[in-house]
Each structure stands twice: as C-alpha cells, then as structure tokens.
C-alpha cells in the first residue's frame, strides 16, 4: 500500500530582510490511518511543515524544495483547480484559534454546508444534512439549534468542535491539526483530544497533530516525531519516544515537563535557546546546548541512526552506542 504522506528531503526557506532556513532536509512517512504528533518548541518548524503541506506559504517570499506526495500524487506540482480540490478535499486543517479560522459573519451550519456543496457538488439540502450529521458526530449538544448559531455565540470548546466538523465534513484522508487544544482549558482540552482520537478511528484518516505539549502528544499519538531547528531529530512510536528517548533534546524535553520532578529541587534544564535559523545547518543544531556534545557533533551533520523499523534518531552518540554493542 502506498503511504498516505511522504516527505522527501523537504527544505523550506523564507526570503525577507534575511533568509530563514525554516525546514532543513526533513523526511517523513505517514501510513494510512496513522496519528502522528510533530512535537517541538516555537520556531522548530512544525507549523511551517503543516503550511507547506497545504501549500499555504506565500510563494513570493518562500522557497520549497524536495518532494511532497499524498497518496502518490505530487503536491508541489498542483496548481489552480487541482490545488483547490486538494485543499479542504483530500487534506484539511484544524487551527489553534477557531475564533479566527471560522468566518464570523456566517452561521455554523451554512459554513459547513457551503464547504460540502463546493467540494462534493451535492444539493443544498444534502449539504445541510451532512453539516447536521457532522455537528452531531463532534458531540455538539442540540446540533439543530447550533446550525444557526454564529461562531461568536459558541464557547471556546464548542467552537473548536465546530471547526473540526468543518474540517472533516468532506471526509479528508489526511487531517492536519495545528495546536488545536493549546488555547483551551485543561478539562476542555481532554474532551477535544478524546474526540479527535475517536473520529480518527471512525473515519480511518491519517492525522498530523502539531503540539509543543508532551502530555498532549502522549494522550493522542500513535507515533511521535520530535522537531528541532527545522529537522526531525528523533522519530518512533509513542512508547519508544516516552520510554526510551535517545536524543539528548528529547530527554531534556521530557525532564522539563516536570511530571515527576521533585518539588523545589533544581531542574535539569536544557541551557540556552534554540539557534537562529539564518544559515543551513552544517553540524548538529542541538550541539551548542547539548550536555554530551563532542567535537564530532560540531564538525559534521549528525548521522541518522536507525534503531528499528521506523525508529530513527539523528545523533552521533546513538551511532557510537550501537557501535559499542
């Protein structure tokens, strides 16, 4: 079976007053029906990856190189009508701020029905029936009434549900979720996470879920890819990443989550700040902050070490560990 999504040595640069190398040689494979979390901090390139997938970057100021294939189709070659059909049809997106992503002047039901009508070419009545069905599936109470609500009349959690209904109305094969629960309260966040997990099983779609919160990643993912400075530095199943992190950065992130930190004791903080991405990395981007850095880490790009099927880590130490065994 072909992979749902394949990224092959993707590079994204932004050209403004200075050049920003946002994504550097990123390769990734997502199987059908898989839930992958892209985990990273601000500036790690996780949101840029999603926008690149939807071809949402401003063409005048950005340059994309490499390969993106979704279900075998070359996405970078799409244009015009084909691109429109791809966006919102095969792939759709859920944003962090539903208040900004939903159109404030249209009723919820009309927005969803309109999207369905445009993409599927069904009748008005059918589209409205689909919209109502979607609102029901995302567990919005009294969906008939909510159909005629404007976005601002819904609470934050309900708005995010409506956003999900809109994104899933055309039954995409791939859903991109950009920090969809970050703006929500804890008790609402867990509801949305559970809902997404359920809908993913139900619809059998692949999901790329971007977050900076490891706790959220553990709750929702099948697999985790950790990003740093525009690269995936470690990838594996959720178990492997949480139980046996190999990259020093992943280890540091897990420690910084404070889940089992002893109160008051000094934290093992990762020192320093992430690098400015004004040049394409020629060595390990994490080495300036890494407690185990060796001269080799600063001399050359780290090797991509395969630790098992679909389990990779970009670290010189991991290679030495394997050699030692």
């Amino acid at each position: 079976m072909t992979a749902l999504l394949e990224l092959d040595r993707l590079n994204v640069t932004f050209h403004g007053e200075q050049t920003i190398h946002a994504i550097n040689d990123l390769s990734l494979r997502l199987e059908q029906g898989e839930m992958l979390v892209l985990l990273g901090e601000s500036g790690s390139g996780k949101s840029v990856t999603l926008k690149t997938l939807l071809r949402l970057l401003p063409p005048a100021r950005s340059r994309v190189q490499g390969g993106i294939t979704v279900n075998g189709a070359d996405i970078l070659a799409l244009s015009g009508r084909k691109l429109q059909e791809y966006r919102g049809g095969e792939v759709s997106m859920v944003f962090q701020e539903p208040a900004l992503a939903l159109d404030p002047v249209y009723r919820i039901g009309d927005q969803i029905a309109e999207a369905v009508r445009r993409k599927k070419g069904v009748s008005r009545a059918e589209a409205r029936a689909t919209a109502l069905d979607m609102l029901r599936r995302v567990r919005i109470p009294s969906p008939e009434r909510r159909m005629s609500n404007f976005p601002h009349e819904l609470s934050g959690g309900m708005r995010q549900r409506a956003m999900i209904a809109l994104a899933l109305a055309c039954r995409p094969r791939l859903l991109l979720a950009d920090e969809p629960t970050t703006a929500l309260d804890a008790t609402v966040q867990i509801q949305i996470l559970l809902l997404l997990r359920e809908l993913q099983k139900e619809f059998g779609m692949g999901v790329i879920f971007v977050t900076h919160d490891i706790g959220v990643a553990v709750e929702i993912s099948d697999r985790i890819a950790v990003m740093y400075a525009g690269q995936i530095i470690e990838e594996g199943s959720t178990h492997e990443i949480i139980r046996d992190p190999r990259h020093p950065y992943t280890q540091g992130l897990l420690a910084a989550n404070l889940h089992d930190a002893a109160p008051g004791e000094r934290l093992e903080a990762i020192p320093g700040v992430p690098p400015a991405l004004d040049a394409k990395p020629v060595a390990c981007s994490f080495s300036p902050r890494c407690p185990h850095a060796q001269p080799g880490c600063r001399a050359d790009l780290p090797p991509v070490v395969s630790l098992g099927p679909r389990r990779h880590v970009s670290c010189l130490l991991a290679q030495q560990d394997i050699a030692a065994q």
């Binding site: 903080a269 020192p271 320093g272 700040v273 300036p288 902050r289």
Partner: peptide, 9 residues
C-alpha cells in the same frame, strides 16, 4: 545555565 545563554548573546 544562564552563563551559556549569555555566551550565546
């Protein structure tokens, strides 16, 4: 920790 941050500045 803070020292590293300063050095990088």
């Amino acid at each position: 920790m803070a020292v590293a941050e300063i050095e990088r500045a």
